[in-house]
Write a protein that binds this DNA or RNA. Structure first.
Lengths: 205, 205
DNA sequence: CTCAGATGCGAGCTTTTACTCATATTATCG
DNA sequence: CGATAATATGAGTAAAAGCTCGCATCTGAG
């Protein structure tokens, strides 16, 4: 638990194809373990075993087990941010409600298929030394959303963005945990919460 | 990580005062560690050290480290459930909005002062073998809220209860994590989300 | 084909951690 | 008090986990 930043970043980057494959296998093994057993079940020996590689190879590219988790978190955040930006870019001139719903769709898709993984990764942030870049992705996402909200007359847009992100995450996460499978239904309830919140904010803010 | 139920429950109950004090010290030490270093930072040796007792004593009352976390989770849930029930019992005939706001206050108070602890405990449920009784507390809470919602004409009350609980938790949790200190402001935003959601649900349900 | 650099390996060393047990101290009650 | 039950202790053990290092194998440029 003493992990500082130096040990939470990749050690070296793969140059040949086989090493890229190896790194990918490690990430997937890590994800699977986090998904089924959580942070506490993740150890380098097991990751290596599940990935079908040796511990030594693992340590060629990951200086610590935290680095694996950090990498997964970064990927997950980057994907979400990219998805959101794509929606926003492709939705110029569209009605507010439509855009919000599309954003919601991106969020739901990213979280609902592997809810345990998503939850563990988010939880991990508070416990690990995560590099600034990965942390920044979270802020970037909020700012992206905030900009969009501001353009549509929502007051305190940054606060609202944070609130909406965390509230939607909480709702979807819990639904996944309970074993709900109807993503459309969950999304529609999340929509209610989001629009409800926004309406109140338009008046009160 | 193999912990089954037998090992996640208290070993024996304190009979004298000194042992009750000891157990209390262990819980508080556990809470402090979870708060600052998360689940991964919790180990029996450290808990004992922080509590100022010996490992041997710890194992007199806790069969495993999981039992400490399980106990903390149970307490936290019991407190929340009690608080909610008290509000509901004391609010017969009060307007819906007032009661909701009081419930929100209970939730916020229980979560906002030690957000890291609250988050870790909730996360822990998925990773540990928690006794049925503690698990049931979660359901009881949802059902309590659901009953209240149903009496006020909310459709799909149980789903709505789950959604509201998790959405409020997500929102408050994130606010605490970001270091917000104005509990009243957070609560008022949570109120917006809750009423917003409920209004949509009254129509759509 | 060759060879230097890149990659892969896994036995094994070290540290951490869960947990026990023999022993010592303290409370309670007659 | 004195005796018995309750409680507290912490050195010690076994298992798990983090991580290294010397050596084997592969790849691609020339």
């Amino acid at each position: 638990m003493k992990t500082d930043l130096a040990t939470a970043n990749p050690r070296k980057t793969p140059r040949q194809r086989r090493s890229a494959v190896l790194v990918e296998a490690i990430y997937e093994a890590g994800a699977r373990i986090l998904e089924t057993e959580g942070l506490a079940g993740l150890n380098t020996n097991r990751v290596a075993a599940v990935a079908g590689v040796s511990v030594g190879s693992l340590y060629q590219y990951f200086p610590s087990k935290e680095a694996i988790v950090a990498g997964l978190l970064r990927q997950s955040r980057q994907d979400l941010l990219d998805g959101m930006r794509q929606v926003l870019a492709a939705s110029e001139g569209e009605p507010f409600e439509v855009v919000v719903d599309r954003l919601l769709g991106v969020a739901a898709r990213g979280q609902f298929d592997r809810p345990n993984l998503a939850r563990t990764l988010e939880y991990a942030e508070g416990m690990l030394a995560i590099d600034e870049e990965t942390r920044a992705l979270k802020t970037e996402l909020a700012e992206e959303i905030a900009g969009f909200l501001e353009r549509h007359g929502i007051s305190r847009p940054l606060i609202a963005a944070w609130d909406l992100i965390s509230l939607v995450r909480g709702l979807i996460d819990a639904a996944g945990l309970r074993g709900e499978t109807d993503a459309a239904d969950v999304q529609s309830r999340a929509r209610s919460a989001v629009f409800g919140y926004l309406e109140k904010m338009r008046i009160a803010g």
